[in-house]
Design a protein around this nucleic acid. Sequence first.
RNA 1: AGGCUCGUAGCUCAGUUGGUUAGAGCGCCACCUUGACACGGUGGAGGUCUGGGGUUCGAGUCCCCACGAGCCUACCA
Length: 902
Amino acid sequence: MAREIAKNYEPQQIEPRWAEFWVREQLFRADANAAGPVFSIVIPPPNVTGSLHIGHMLDHTEIDILTRWHRMRGYNTLYLPGMDHAGISTQRVVVRELAAQGIDYRKLGRDEFVRRVWKWKEESGGTITRQMKQIGESCDWSREKFTLSPELSRVVRMVFVQLYEQGLIYRAHYMTNWCPVCLTVLSDLEVLHEERAGHLWHIRYPVVGKQEYIVVATTRPETMLGDTAVAVHPEDERYRHLVGQRVLLPLMEREIPIVADEMVDREFGTGAVKITPAHDPNDFELGRRHRLPEIDVLTGDGHMSAAAGAYTGLDRFEARKRVVEDLKALGLLEKVTEHTHAIGICERSRTIVEPRASTQWFCKMKPLAEPAVAAVESGEIQIVPENRRQEYFNWMRNIRDWTLSRQLWWGHRIPAWYCEDCKQVNVALDDPAKCMKCGSAKLTQDPDVLDTWFSSALWPFSTLGWPEETPDFRRYYPTSLLITGYDILFFWVARMIMMGMHFTRKAPFRAVYLHSLVRTAGGEKMSKSKGTGLDPVALNQQYGTDAMRFCLASMAAPGTDIVLSDDRLGSARNFANKIWNASRFLFGKLDSLEQSGITLEELAAPEIRAKAPYAAGGAVSLVDGWLFSRLAATISLVNEALQSYRFHEAAQGVYHFFWGDFCDWYIEWVKPELQSAERERAVAAWRNLFAALDAALRVLHPFMPFITEELWQQFPQPAGAKSIALDTFPEGRTEWKNAEALEQFALIQEVIVALRNIRAEMKLADPKKKVAAEFSSPDERARQAMESSRDGIVRLAMLSEWKVGGERLPQSGAAVRSTALFDVRIAYVAETLDVAAEGLRLRKQIEGLEKAIAAKEKQLADDTFRSRAPEKVVRGLEATLAEQTTELRKLRTRLEELKTAV
RNA sequence: AGGCUCGUAGCUCAGUUGGUUAGAGCGCCACCUUGACACGGUGGAGGUCUGGGGUUCGAGUCCCCACGAGCCUACCA
């Protein structure tokens, strides 16, 4: 009996159910003891603040596609999910939430603050898990592997201690980037550079004891309050006489020396530089060389410090204004010029970062980078696409030390204790009770925490039980693949490789696939911190997860970024609906199925499906031979494309097969067969149709898991079968390959299209107006094909009659389409043909052919071409030339006849 | 400043090692409310591949230059 099934695919009603199901049934739980090749994949943790953004979708879509594909092909698959970073953004969000409640987090104290973050995370972690399920993520986002869990915390500490003992982690006073909003130092990577229009202020510093000024140029006038010298180039004639003299620092009334240093660029500005060792990297270096004092004129939150004299307490930008005004009033501002320069922006808070000298923990990178470079050079790790390899090398070869410490409360606390008595630094795995040097019990732990990427760098092995040799670690490490966006190549990927090589002597993964970024219509990178992310949950509700996944996959060509558009999403949604309706067609025909004496159960039985294509009577019909050959081709296309991470090719391949081949041609062609009075024919047709649809659904499953699961579940399945995700991926069977069927059916399609074209030109598109048509070709096989596919052609081209002959037919009184191989004609009544339009069409076609022929003739006449081009190309060209010449002759004759007819 | 990527139909983009009249989706035009689907069907129009030069028998595809767009890295006040 025909089943009732919704007319359109309604994802909101179907997807949540399967999302729950997959997680509940733990379909994707790995088993270290299971048989089969291993596929383990590192999943970038979705960051955390309780909601997802579209950028995650691409990670998870690609990962999920590959995982499902591998699983269906019998791989033992492991996901390595990370739950969260313990980073700045988390702390920022919680601080903001507390502030909204009128609570100053600083007053809570560290322990209470951390407790509240945990509580808050637990709540939002639930949200994330729900959202992950909604977007189709099938892995289990359990909390047990959370970065700050006791187990992982201990591993992080252990790694820190070992690196310290190996001399790779050190504590030093150095120039760092300070974010006045996040209230912490940042690593160089966390600082973005932006070109901004600014000014260059030229300030006069009076030379002590002389009636002259030395003029310095600066982009940050407020830092002058912390100047401790002025520098000039030692060979600069203009200033040679002033070296060793002193200037009186305006506003501060402090005497500072004029020093000579090679660092100064004589060409820039005035050739004299103010030196602020506490607030500029160059000045810091210079200050060390000349033993200059450092004066920090800023406070942590971006105000002027007590060292800023009269400006103490002012906001840094307000102070800039006031300093400039005051200098102007004193007549010490010589001029102001326009100047664009790059300024540092905090990646998280988008505020201007201040260079500031401070004491921090650093990690020496050169020794770690070398093996990591070698691993990629040797091919132990493959980076896809290729050009990212170069970026990796460039960065790794010029790597600078990594600022590890952060002035935050949320994160892994640095395992260092300072002795109040002897100042000894104690770094230890377990909290020490007394100083290792003097035995004093007066120890204070460093208040800082580690950069969140430090623990993330350990992810591939720390989550597998390392340093223990666990079964998981033995089986799944090195992991097979890491998929992530190229924007965290340095942040995460490079550091995982370095730490992996250093601690396990092995690469953490065999391949890295760096995908594109999803951009907004305006081309902006989608990012939470910028607030430009689209909400994937909302888009899912609008289009469905399958549509979104398919859309992303079909656009994910490596190397270029993805701009998500409503058009493209809509087209993917339409595709889902097409799949739905193709299946609905089958459900709607169950009555006629039963009339043929078979049941859906029989049809769906694996042993029946496996033997397709079936033949009714003698041989497998042309259309079945063709369709299964196309199916085999599609399967190998998908396999090859996914092997090389060419998701867009795979997606477009299945789209074309399903919509173009299966729906537009195959289903239309076999419709009458399904209701054939001959039982054998009907049964064969049903079996083939079902087997093809079933295989198509399984090929589609990695891309569109929800709709395919729903349809698969609607069909009878063998006892114990749980999910299409655990079914097998179809094999492109060699016996399905059928070049002859492909060629023959292509000819039939060409003929049908030519006939439809004539109909349209003749305004006969109305299918009720059936017309008689004739076919002629000197080719015996072509005529046979037209005869044996008579029924299909008549129906799909809406004909009343179909004559097949060898003789070329008279062309007068008929509309004709010709190729080198055949002519088709439909007789017309004079007024149905627009002679002018037909003439125009012919002329245009003739013109195109003439050009193509001329080009080929010229090429073939060229002896160098004949001698150098491969045989195959020359022959192909000759064959095409012959065809085109025939076609051209026909078209010319036709044009002549058209003229005389009028 | 260095490095990388891109510039193909009205729009958004494919086009693997150079090879026979350059593809898709959306949009557009015409016809079709045909019992799977108007989130549909059928047919059609529309690019000479930013510009210039070079290599080659042959270039959208390789090389050089210019113009335009973007990204990454970089301590020039």
